[in-house]
Amino acid sequence: MKCALRAGIGVLAVTAAVLTFAPAASAAAFDITYDCQADTPLGAENLTLNQAVEATAPASVAPGGALDVVVDPAPNQVPSEAAGYEVKEVNTFTLKVPVPTNATLAGVDLTGGSGLGPNPPQWSEAGGVVTVTFDGPIAGGASFELPTITAHLTAGASGTIESTLYGSGYDDPGLTFTAVVSTFLGDISAPTSCFPNPNPVLTTTAIG
């Protein structure tokens, strides 16, 4: 079951994963590693997951100027089984990303993506943190692609704008979802909490 949950999470991990920010410089590729813990009737399952993404942002911006930071997650697939157990689906995703210091958020666009369920992803912002959610479900064995996430920012007066992911521990996660796995106990729903470990700087833009 551990492998099943790992696969289900890794596929989404970034789930969309990774909402950072976007445009006019060469893309940088990252393999994001999330440290995750699933709460199951059999006890806590600790696991890691990886998700490839590309992130772009301008190298510099004028004080008070507009800039985009874009994160484009790679396509992925939910496994149909793991450790001898059927992966039935993964659902109820939440991904958090902090608004960078020295910048304010003007808006977020979620574009593209496929196989994420009948309801499109949504975003909201509170307390300097952007939260992206989507319901799923994504069935075991199904292919999917998370949406490209573009954050529209306004630069501050000076300094550097660095985009990162959110999360510092299982009690302060940046990514959550639920995996449903068929086991000898029946179907198990395993709420899972993840945080990036390490938490890389995805883009850097100098103000000036």
Rank of each mutant, 00 (worst) to 15 (best):
G127V: 08
P79L: 08
A17L: 10
T20F: 03
L185S: 10
Y34I: 12
L202Y: 03
P98D: 05
T92G: 08
A74I: 02
A151L: 13
P100A: 03
T164S: 15
T15S: 13
L185G: 10
G64K: 02
G128H: 04
S80W: 02
T176M: 08
T203S: 08
N102T: 05
A66P: 01
T164V: 15
V99R: 02
G112F: 02
V18D: 12
P23Y: 05
G128F: 04
V201K: 06
T178Y: 04
T56Y: 04
W123P: 12
I9G: 07
A25E: 13
T204D: 02
P100R: 01
T104E: 10
L105D: 10
T33M: 07
Q77S: 11
A52R: 14
R6M: 08
A13C: 12
A28P: 01
L19R: 14
C36R: 10
T178F: 03
A83H: 08
D171Q: 13
F134G: 13
T203R: 01
L95F: 09
D35P: 00
D109V: 07
N102Y: 00
A157M: 04
A59D: 11
S168T: 15
N50T: 14
G128M: 03
P58Q: 09
G136W: 09
G113R: 01
A27S: 14
V90I: 15
G159E: 09
Y166H: 15
G65S: 08
T150S: 11
A62S: 15
V181H: 06
T111N: 06
T204I: 00
F184Y: 06
A44R: 07
I9H: 06
Y34G: 12
I32Q: 06
V97E: 11
A139G: 14
P147I: 12
N50K: 13
L146R: 06
G117S: 05
Q77T: 15
N199M: 01
P73M: 04
T160Q: 11
S163H: 09
A190V: 05
A25I: 07
N102G: 02
S193Y: 09
L47R: 09
T94E: 13
G140T: 05
N91S: 14
A179M: 13
F184G: 13
L202M: 06
A62C: 06
A29C: 02
Y166V: 05
A151D: 07
D109L: 04
S114C: 01
T48M: 02
P75M: 06
S158D: 14
T178S: 09
T111I: 11
F30I: 09
A52L: 10
T160M: 05
G208M: 00
T133K: 10
L67H: 05
T176N: 07
A28L: 12
E145D: 15
L185N: 12
A55Q: 07
V69M: 09
G84K: 00
P196G: 05
F134K: 04
P41D: 13
T150L: 03
D109Q: 05
D39H: 07
F93T: 11
C36H: 09
P120A: 14
A62V: 13
A4F: 00
S158C: 00
S193I: 00
G128N: 05
G115M: 02
A103K: 01
P98F: 01
N197T: 02
A142C: 08
A29P: 00
I188F: 00
